[in-house]
Write a protein that binds this DNA or RNA. Structure first.
Lengths: 365, 365
DNA sequence: ATGCAGGATGCATGCGCAGTCACAACCGAG
DNA sequence: CTCGGTTGTGACTGCGCATGCATCCTGCAT
């Protein structure tokens, strides 16, 4: 049986004041004498009293403009993926620092997002972050009507039903294409993530457009599911083909590392001499000494900071405008692209990217 | 301004019934006519009504034996670490499946656990999982008095103030020592995690005891902080020493991979011919083709399942006994220990471990 | 000495829901 | 046709808190 915890009435009795006084002692800026507050806090300490956050949000439900539970829903996909776990950690810490709490929901497929949001809304979350997934238009409407701001991370919001923060995937793809063309690759392959995943598709589109501008066409195309193992398998398929590609651009670092390990281990290839590999994201393992993967970095710290700011601003001014922030990816030249280290200053595109990333994100209200 | 969402009264009015009827329509096993329930559900659908979970837990606070918020606190350390992110993901999914929700709290240091629990208790969590950290005895008492079960993951509970689930770290260390002795290594080093970290200390103690049984002493000792980079740095220090070790046992796979990359990249060493490396945990990257790290596997799926079961059992029978589950680590022979693949069936210890892991965990009520 | 402003405090109320209680409606048996 | 029993339903209450409102008190100006 759950033991009863002390309530504000218990504290009031012990401190010899009214329950209102206890409530006021715990809310900043309330009209209460310093002496009284001390008396109350002392009694509270003695009883181990902590204001009940649930009851508090119930109570304030009356006062229209401040109903707050202090809870934010965080809906995540592929939590164990190193790219995402870094981001989740940063979200968690950022919100904590500002006094918010996160209700975590891990979903498998895009289709579960609506269900997750519905369930979270029963807890009267004040807002939500949705990672790498979209909600339905229906759900977006429900959230809007309920006054719950949602920020999509890693997805562009369509029709401004929500705010969003993401990387310019098409531009990243174009940067990748530019680098591979500039370094004289001829048989270029692309390894995509899950079928019809917006992120992967955009990177591919930008990549293809970039190749086309250089007068090249894709030599091969494979598809994985953003996991390392799928990268290994796709790598094997690519390298077994008759016309072996001399470069592969992968929709994520995790898959790119799969290709790298497959190329070295199962084909004894020298990277980048016999095969160039280009990733996307810049996860920690990309920088490991034996990997030194050339990739497009997502400035995820700035991106998370931006997402948190957008959400909190909307929490404070619920009728304010949303915001779509698009960040530029930054080409990181390491060792897996042949000839790249010979380019002056890492090539023009890299310089451009660096400049863009340093500034503000492009935005669309 | 937050828009008002539909309440049970709104649904009642639309359905032409009382508020009580609406409440009953949403609670299984309540005394209500099927026809009435349908009417209510239809009205609810029309208004987009969802029972308010906050108000529900407020209300049921009166009925002593069932106060439930449905929220479980999850306090985590080192969230981005691949070993932990897998586990967090599994916790998240397991609890979700059973209708519980997780309030996530990411902490940096052991000392923050008490603060985190205190904060979570304001939300009247029904229970908590604490990963890789201990709470103070004081806090344990507070939780016990409040009737909030806590399960420590990856830590042994002292004085049965809480339940716990963890791996037999000392035995894992002993297995590591056994393997290195059996394969004829002579200058053996240990790479620890953070200073005075219980996990690292226990692994070290078991390892040292094992070496001693074989008549060997540690040739060198280094300390990192469980990160890859610290593994690289510690690896450099070890390999620069006059009497270079011929084997290193690392307190975690992440650090072991750091040593591996450092040995190959900065010293051009052949692993395992010139240096054997042994890790602990068996994270996904340990199995990558170019790593093939020999390690002690934690059967984390079974462990998380056990932790969830323990917590839910205590949630349902709050006065029931706690439980300390200790799982056996399983030696996974890959390629980073010289001579290990020559052992019959991977060596006796591996067979033993496999058998132990297949069975029930040892337990101490 | 009187009036008044402004701070401090207590009382009463309701947030949305689940459960208790009382009673109406309806059943089959006598 | 009446009576005990069974269901279904609605009125009412309180979970713990924050706040509006009324009241009281203190200090200061007149």
């Amino acid at each position: 049986m759950r033991k009863r915890t002390a309530t504000s009435y218990d504290v009031a009795r012990l401190a010899g004041v009214s329950q209102s006084a206890v409530s006021r002692a715990f809310s900043a800026g309330a009209s209460i004498a310093a002496e009284t507050r001390q008396k109350v806090l002392a009694a509270a300490r003695e009883l181990g009293y902590q204001p009940n956050a649930i009851a508090r949000s119930m109570s304030s439900a009356r006062h229209a403009d401040v109903q707050r539970t202090g809870i934010i829903g965080l809906i995540v996909t592929r939590l164990p993926d190193p790219f995402f776990s870094q981001i989740i950690d940063m979200f968690s810490r950022s919100f904590q620092l500002q006094g918010w709490h996160l209700l975590l929901f891990s979903v498998e497929a895009e289709a579960e997002v609506d269900r997750a949001l519905t369930e979270l809304m029963r807890f009267k979350i004040d807002g939500a972050i949705v990672m790498s997934a979209l909600m339905s238009d229906h759900m977006a409407g429900v959230c809007r009507r309920a006054g719950i701001p949602v920020v999509l991370y890693n997805r562009r919001a369509s029709r401004s039903e929500a705010s969003s923060v993401c990387i310019d995937n098409a531009d990243g793809g174009a940067q990748a294409a530019g680098l591979l063309l500039q370094t004289g690759h001829g048989r270029i392959a692309f390894l995509g993530g899950s079928h019809h995943d917006a992120t992967s598709d955009d990177r591919e589109a930008g990549f293809l457009a970039g190749l086309e501008r250089g007068g090249l066409r894709l030599a091969a195309r494979e598809e994985g599911d953003f996991t390392f193992d799928s990268g290994v398998e796709a790598g094997k398929r690519l390298l077994l083909s008759r016309e072996r590609p001399d470069a592969v651009f992968c929709a994520s670092d995790v898959m790119a590392l799969g290709v790298l390990h497959a190329a070295q281990e199962y084909f004894g290839l020298s990277v980048p001499r016999e095969l160039s590999i280009l990733g996307f994201d810049d996860i920690p393992a990309a920088a490991w000494p034996r990997h030194q993967l050339t990739t497009i970095r997502q400035p995820y710290r700035a991106m998370v900071r931006e997402a948190v700011e957008i959400l909190i601003r909307q929490l404070e001014a619920p009728d304010g405008p949303g915001r779509d922030a698009v960040f530029a990816g930054q080409l990181i030249l390491r060792r897996t692209v042949r000839g790249a280290n010979l380019l002056p200053d890492g090539g023009d595109r890299a310089r451009e990217a660096r400049a863009a990333a340093a500034g503000q994100p492009a935005s669309h209200a």
